[in-house]
Design a protein around this nucleic acid. Structure first.
Lengths: 132, 132
DNA sequence: TAACTGTTATATATGTAATATAACAGTTAG
DNA sequence: CTAACTGTTATATTACATATATAACAGTTA
């Protein structure tokens, strides 16, 4: 899996890394049970510090996306992904609200916005089943 | 317009304030041409520093949501809101992608996601026309 | 003139992000 | 058993963002 970091971005490196791993899972390029590089090798590959990768892994572990297997190292959670909890729905609303509000301000119609979401959903989830 | 700040939030105060003003415009509770409190009085009302409010106003001005009128002070842009530029669409994609990816990971269907967006759009844009 | 406006400057305290170095306990390969 | 790896933790430092405090400036308004 190819990971691209933008050192000029306003987003922290550990957040960019976290997002791309989640996108990798969503797209199917990272399968449940598949192992991730060690914090040291990942850090080395990306040219960042060990602790930056470790922070990403710690957060992904806390949310249930990955787990640390004593033999296999860090793996995408083989038991499946975290569920749609009330807490997650609350977080989702908080993330979407300002984005939707700005779209409305700029005169974007509901259909325009839904089309963008549909296209994005299709694009990300495109290669889900055939990669199993 | 009522503004609520969460001092425990991970979001900076100036971002919370910015989001709520944009949501106010989207909902119609803030109309184009309507004036906003001065940086000092707003800061005083919210119990924050002058510069925190000033940063919010500066960012909103840069994006075209408000402008500084020599007589009327700070007003919601009477010429209308900023448009849907290519730059904005790029920003929108960057904001939505990680959110949609996590939803897919958690097994949320496209319809579930679209329903949330629709409800949110309706809720925000509900009192648009009747407030003019 | 006095009180307000946005704006700018400077300084300080705090927290986060990212780095560097080091160590520990456990696992694995030679 | 040794050596090299694993995740994990600790400590320290640098850099930057956030938020504050205080002050001043030019322009506007009552």
């Amino acid at each position: 899996m190819i990971i691209r970091l933008d050192m000029q971005s306003e987003l922290p490196i550990y957040t960019q890394l976290m997002n791309q791993i989640i996108e990798g899972i969503a797209s199917g390029s990272l399968q449940p049970g598949e192992s991730l590089p060690s914090v040291r090798s990942m850090a080395s590959d990306l040219g960042v510090n060990l602790h930056t990768v470790n922070k990403t892994y710690t957060l992904l572990k806390q949310e249930g996306f990955i787990l640390v297997h004593r033999q296999k190292g860090v793996v995408i959670n083989p038991e499946g992904m975290p569920e749609i909890t009330a807490e997650y729905e609350h977080k989702l609303h908080g993330q979407l609200k300002p984005v939707v509000a700005e779209a409305i301000c700029r005169g974007m119609s509901q259909d325009q916005l839904l089309t963008i979401i549909k296209d994005m959903y299709k694009q990300i989830a495109h290669g889900r089943k055939e990669n199993i």
